[in-house]
Design a protein around this nucleic acid. Structure first.
Lengths: 225, 225
DNA sequence: CTTTTAAAAATTGTTAACAATTTGTTGGCA
DNA sequence: TGCCAACAAATTGTTAACAATTTTTAAAAG
């Protein structure tokens, strides 16, 4: 495909991923191709390609043959694996970021915290989700490893879907207070403290997940058995 | 797409990835769609989808609009980033694997080493490459985290392409001696030693890469400037 | 009123024809 | 010979029509 088609597919991927990440499309939602064509003002071939990509790359969509695409419902095991992998990457990124603290990068961290503050001030939940994800992405960019950034970006997306599916209450647990403490430790150059704070930050998020139980959706087996 | 088409695309992806990983398709090789259709006995649409996947997921193919697909030529920066990320994952995997040492898993490690020995005995270079990759995949599977396994699998593929492009001599540096030492440390439950051996193993591979210089292929700018 | 069956509609899956672009070749001409 | 234009071939990119499957609707039968 030419660049134009690829860009269009990416546009659709981004729109859908954003909607899933910001919990506007709950897990299990049916994604009918013709509706997406209408809503996104797109070509059906492109929509199909985008859905395939979301299914095979980020795994936030699952495709059932002859039945169509749905917002994915990751299993408890997958949720655990995603968190385990993410913590791993986040810890390493914190360490790398501390070694790359240029004036510009310090500034980026401050600016990012301001964005989050603004989102909270406006009580804009979707923007809060978006910005809390951006915080971790900025950290990865400061770490200066594009491969790590790409891997983490995928895990951030999946994490948000997992939260939609398993978190007991809908508040955004990826809090600015913990981000602020992290930034303080990073700017202070205290790698050990920063790493520990990142561990605790991830643990905080994980603590509110109901990973002992089944997915939130109706389990016919349990409900009728 | 239905399951059948997806399977067919995956078959093509696997065939192409194997050829690239085993250095049968050197970096920069042109991949003409019609030739692939012939050689792989496939449909052109499926070939195109497979090439797109290899480009956007594993990044071992690069697609130039209106010019076609080529075996990728990762930059020195990308090579460094891939290795940095891979070391990170491998270290963690070693630690996790030691905690999961069932009888079956001990056996899998032994069996894997036997496979590698056999490849060496037969002087089958392509099988040696394949099996040395399998060693790291088995380790990831023993670690018991499917997400980590998937991420590492992608990085192993990319690593092999990087070696094809940047290693000074063509021997397989991912050696069974170091694998054997690693297995000994793991079976002995010595996490600190095993992690250190993994570090050294990765360092050994990296040591033979010419990452100070340009890619091996002719650089017109440098050659004619 | 419930169940069954058949037809219609909606939705997904597949393909090959067509279009656009790049690459290669030939022949004229100074 | 060297250069250029026009044509031809090869290759990639795009699309819409067609096929297959599932879901819905409606009618008929018990």
């Amino acid at each position: 495909m030419g660049t134009r088609a690829q860009q269009e597919i990416q546009r659709i991927v981004d729109r859908l991923a954003a909607a899933i990440v910001e919990h506007r499309l709950p897990p299990g939602t049916r994604l009918v191709e013709s509706k997406l064509v209408e809503v996104l003002n797109a070509n059906r071939n492109h929509v199909r390609a985008a859905l395939q990509k979301l299914a095979s790359e980020q795994k936030v969509v699952s495709i059932v043959p002859n039945r169509g695409a749905f917002v994915a419902q990751p299993t408890v095991e997958e949720a655990r694996d995603v968190f385990e992998a993410r913590i791993l990457l986040e810890r390493a990124i914190v360490g790398l970021a501390i070694r790359n603290l240029s004036a510009r990068n310090r500034n980026r961290l401050q600016k990012q915290l301001e964005q989050e503050t603004e989102a909270i001030r406006r009580h804009d939940r979707q923007e809060m989700i978006r910005e809390s994800g951006n915080f971790h992405r900025v950290l990865a960019e400061i770490a200066g490893n594009q491969v790590l950034t790409d891997l983490l970006t995928g895990l951030i997306t999946r994490t948000s879907l997992i939260i939609a599916l398993y978190q007991e209450t809908p508040e955004v647990k990826c809090s600015i207070e913990e981000h602020q403490a992290l930034v303080d430790a990073i700017l202070g150059g205290d790698a050990a403290l920063a790493t520990q704070l990142m561990d605790e930050h991830m643990a905080t998020i994980q603590r509110y997940l109901l990973l002992d139980e089944r997915p939130k959706t109706v389990d016919l087996q349990a409900a009728l058995g």
